[in-house]
């Protein structure tokens, strides 16, 4: 059971964007170098985030990206759903194919896990994470997340 690199890198890049919220458009190349992530990979991820309405892209020499909503209004659930697709721990049910035990376990175990993970991720916003970043241990000064 794994969160993909797309989910992990995308979340980190968005946090970087959120930390710099209010400073105008942020160039992807700046995020890439601060976060030690590949610029090309980020381009792909941000095209996706833009289509999903989480970020706004501006073209031009002063262009870049900004968050489409205030950080308080973007939950980690929303972000991971866009980046990972389905967050469920199992594949979708094909009810006619499920044995009795399988459909029982789906409702008693797997759906419970999915629901609890969803509840958790819906309570955490990008603002919570940027707060955690800004109040982290400052003994190691660095501009990264």
């Amino acid at each position: 059971m794994k969160i993909s690199t797309r989910g992990r890198y995308g979340l980190r890049a968005l946090l970087d964007l959120a930390v710099h919220d209010g400073q105008g458009c942020i160039a992807l190349s700046d995020i890439a170098s601060r976060q030690a992530l590949s610029f090309n990979y980020l381009e792909g991820i941000f095209a996706h985030l833009k289509r999903a309405g989480l970020v706004i892209g501006t073209a031009g020499s002063m262009g870049g990206y900004t968050l489409a909503k205030p950080p308080k209004e973007i939950t980690v659930h929303e972000i991971l759903l866009v980046l990972e697709g389905d967050l469920s721990v199992t594949d979708r049910a094909l009810p006619e194919k499920d044995s009795e035990i399988r459909s029982f376990l789906r409702s008693e175990v797997w759906d419970v896990l999915d629901q609890e993970i969803e509840n958790l991720l819906k309570t955490i916003t990008i603002a919570d994470l940027t707060d955690a970043f800004l109040h982290r241990d400052h003994s190691s000064q660095c501009s990264c997340l």
């Binding site: 979340l11 980190r12 175990v109 609890e116 982290r136 190691s140 660095c142």
Partner: peptide, 22 residues
């Protein structure tokens, strides 16, 4: 840049949620 990672907290919380149930 792992020393400043805040998203790790999310992964830990997901993990704790799963373990608490299973």
């Amino acid at each position: 840049v792992r020393a400043n990672c805040v998203s790790r907290q999310i992964w830990i919380q997901i993990n704790d949620t799963i373990n608490r149930i299973v």
